[in-house]
Design a protein around this nucleic acid. Structure first.
Lengths: 140, 140
DNA sequence: TGGATATATTCGCCATAACGAATATATTAT
DNA sequence: ATAATATATTCGTTATGGCGAATATATCCA
């Protein structure tokens, strides 16, 4: 997976970029982190895909320098490296006749059922991004 | 190859468009016909690919409604259905750091060695789009 | 330190699509 | 009508990439 800014033929460089993001899961990811960075746990809630699949897509995007990540505790947050990618996607969406509102839904927060910190402002950070945490301790 | 404007998930519709044009030959074709329509013979000169391959790509683009064609004599001319596709490609080019001049070269005419009518204004239309026409008749 | 959890990575399978070769179709010239 | 030519289509092979399963790594908590 060559880096996007390889100095070869223009058509090949453009091709790599488009082929890279020309996939439903990646497009959803890019929209989801486009306006605001997101942790993987948020992407799981949005994409409704298995975590491993999402990480695979993130790896591809990362190696292509389209996204960068940083760790915060157990969570890893992703954001766009070049915001222009979002513009590109928006224009593609317009070309295929997608309504702007439908696009906004892809970036909207909070996402219901998402346990990530950004979708749950004010929640104890210790409790975010936890799937089906056992509450047995509080039961007795 | 589903039509681009299928009413399914936004990310899938966008994906189809991007995957469709995310290929060097198609990108070259779209740039070549972006500003001005072109016949297949011109595309052969520009892409330096075999005719059958070019026609295959054209067929894909046609079925996706990205280009339309009309016949003029023996030649068939192609043009963009939605000019916005060109804008999309230009923006993608900018994202990968391609200089505008390099882009312009992809649409520039005349192309040297191209026998198409547009690359040879004033030439007898009967003689355009003819590869290695036998001149044996004139030899004796 | 050990266990739980969030995320990453590797591997093998499978489908899709690009490509080359061959051939078909439509138009013009003789 | 026949030949020549511009373009289209079909077919079979092959390669690329996405996906599921399994596993690894890193961090936090007790």
């Amino acid at each position: 997976m060559a880096n996007i800014s390889n100095p070869d033929l223009p058509s090949e460089a453009i091709s790599r970029l488009l082929a890279l993001i020309g996939q439903p899961a990646r497009i959803q990811i890019l929209f989801a982190i486009g306006e605001q960075e997101a942790c993987v746990c948020h992407l799981e809630a949005v994409l409704e895909m298995r975590q491993a699949s999402i990480s695979q897509h993130l790896m591809v995007l990362r190696k292509a320098n389209l996204v960068t990540s940083y760790r915060d505790g157990r969570n890893i947050f992703y954001r766009l490296t070049q915001p222009g990618v979002l513009t590109l996607l928006q224009q593609a969406a317009q070309l295929v006749g997608i309504q702007p509102e439908a696009l906004r839904r892809l970036a909207l927060r909070p996402v219901e059922g998402c346990p990530c910190p950004q979708c749950n402002p004010g929640m104890d950070p210790q409790l975010t991004c936890q799937k089906a945490r056992s509450k047995s301790k509080n039961i007795s």
